[in-house]
């Protein structure tokens, strides 16, 4: 299967995550169990405890976050999270500087611990990924700069 066919076949799912991230759909309509409090939490730590039931995840270099150093467009910042941690139950994404930092919670079962999506970022800040693995929480972060237009040289 070539890339275009693959992209097409996964189109349905991507559209939902993109739409949710961009605020076009209320997450509640997309996600079965919608943790309302977590999605309306104003800071990362209460969003983490709201969404995942525990706070203070352990920092882990085994979580890789791919995101641009500078966003090309703050409305759709491509973010890919992958991890070598085993028994991954969920991967959650937070945009630290957003008014409501929780962007998405992906509940996974077996399969590769890998999610790729686009998130909306209002301004420069850390993208935080929290992975639930074997009942424990691990996290890593990467800063993404959201800048006003520079001037070409």
């Amino acid at each position: 299967m070539n890339r275009r066919a693959l992209l097409k076949s996964t189109l349905g799912a991507s559209v939902i995550t993109v739409a949710a991230a961009a605020g076009l759909l209320l997450p509640g309509r997309v996600l079965a169990a919608y943790p309302k409090e977590a999605f309306s939490a104003k800071d990362v730590s209460s969003a983490v405890s709201g969404a995942l039931g525990a706070a203070n995840p352990q920092q882990s270099d085994q979580i890789e976050i791919k995101a641009p150093d500078i966003a090309e467009n703050g409305s759709v910042v491509p973010v890919t999270i992958s991890t070598e941690l085993s028994n991954v139950e969920s991967i959650s994404i937070f945009a630290e500087s957003n008014g409501t930092p929780l962007v998405a919670v992906f509940n996974l079962s077996s399969a590769d611990a890998f999610v790729s999506t686009r998130i909306k970022m209002g301004k420069t800040g850390n993208v935080v990924a929290v992975v639930k693995s074997g009942g424990k929480l691990y996290s890593n972060s990467k800063e993404v700069k959201v800048t006003i237009g520079g001037c070409g040289g």
Binding site: D69, I70, K145, T147, I148, G149, G150, C151, G152, G153
Partner: peptide, 17 residues
Amino acid sequence: GVADNLLDPDPYLQSGG
């Protein structure tokens, strides 16, 4: 904002110009 595009000490975070 523009000053930061020019003067961020990390060149990867500069935007040129």
